[in-house]
């Protein structure tokens, strides 16, 4: 024993410096870029500019509309994502992987295409055309299902839906008005209207909410529902009494994620709802409009406000998801 009494030598494993330095360099470069982007906005804006722009009544309307539409989109996204994600998480059926892929399409599509598709759907397509398309889709699903695996429950349901939509298409065949005409007639105009902002934000926001809820339900053991069912619950009661209380945090996380995604939405809103000051302008379009009129400090001030909102939202998501989305 060469150690001197009273002095214990502490052995350390030498870090592999070149590899560690490489990792640190990549992280520093990426984080540096993000921080420099924020810093550039901070340098461009002054308190006076920020105050001036925030006092502008149009911008105040834009901020209010942003909060209202993002909140409406988030609520709508959670309402839709909970049943969709539960179905995909708990049920095994033919075509599940295909539906799962379809649900990711809004995330992958260029945002402008989402807006353009909504614009065409609401203004160039008649209700009977919509029904024909739905009937065709369901018929395709039913026939491909039958050819692939034979007759089954899903094939019967999709076949039935094809018949229903086919019948509706025939009933509506004389009506050549667009969906927008019908919506406007019912007092809920969409295109170039504040409600259109929600519809433009919804497809992508809901896709993110579905992903979050899917993860949440996957983390909840189906055994809880099974035990609840042996105690007298039907599927719906087991879902409402046992699964939903467990999915509370996941639902908040999904809503927050949808809210953040809606906040950043720009392309679909511009195409479908427009960028009319004091009417359909939200924060993302405000930044665009301020740049267009050459007010860079104003645009930078609004950008900082959006960054602040996005970071707060992300921290909230981390808080909820980090503590277990399934609780």
């Amino acid at each position: 024993m060469e150690e001197k009494q009273g002095r214990d030598k502490i052995w350390r494993v030498r870090p592999e410096w070149p590899f560690l330095l490489f990792l640190v360099f990549v992280v520093a470069a990426y984080l540096g870029l993000l921080l420099l982007m924020v810093g550039a906005n901070v340098l461009t804006v002054s308190w006076k500019d920020a105050w001036e722009i925030l006092k502008d009544p149009d911008i105040q309307h834009s901020i209010k509309l942003t909060f209202v539409t993002c909140t409406a989109t988030a609520i709508l996204s959670v309402l839709v994502s909970v049943p969709v994600a539960y179905l995909l998480s708990r049920y095994q059926f033919r075509g599940r992987a295909f539906i799962d892929t379809l649900l990711d399409i809004p995330i992958l599509l260029p945002p402008l295409i989402v807006g353009l598709s909504l614009l065409i759907l609401f203004n160039r397509v008649s209700p009977s055309d919509c029904c024909w398309m739905m009937a065709g889709g369901f018929l395709l699903a039913a026939v491909s299902g039958c050819l692939w695996k034979g007759k089954g429950m899903v094939q019967s349901v999709t076949g039935g839906m094809a018949v229903v939509f086919g019948g509706l298409a025939l009933l509506l065949s004389g009506n050549e008005s667009s969906l927008e005409d019908i919506a406007s007639g019912a007092g809920i105009p969409m295109t170039f209207h504040p409600l259109g902002v929600v519809l433009a934000q919804f497809p992508v926001a809901a896709a993110f909410a579905v992903r979050t809820m899917r993860t949440t339900f996957d983390q909840i053991s189906p055994r809880y529902e099974e035990v609840a069912m042996t105690l007298g619950c039907n599927r719906g009661q087991a879902f409402a009494r046992v699964v939903l209380p467990l999915a509370g945090k996941g639902m908040v996380a999904a809503g927050t994620m949808a809210w953040a995604r809606a906040l950043g939405e720009f392309g679909p809103i511009l195409i479908f709802a427009g960028a009319t000051r004091g009417r359909t302008e939200v924060l993302a379009t405000s930044v665009f409009l301020e740049i267009n009129i050459g007010n860079l400090p104003g645009a930078a001030a609004l950008s900082l406000l959006m960054i602040l909102l996005a970071v707060t939202t992300l921290l909230l998501v981390r808080f909820f998801v980090g503590r277990g989305g399934a609780m």
């Binding site: 099974e226 069912m229 042996t230």
Partner: peptide
């Protein structure tokens, strides 16, 4: 019959007590 109408009590391997 559905599970709740069978008159059977189940203690699963992972216990599955309702956490809330």
């Amino acid at each position: 019959l559905p599970p709740g109408a069978r008159g059977i009590g189940l203690v699963p391997q992972d216990v599955a007590l309702f956490p809330t």
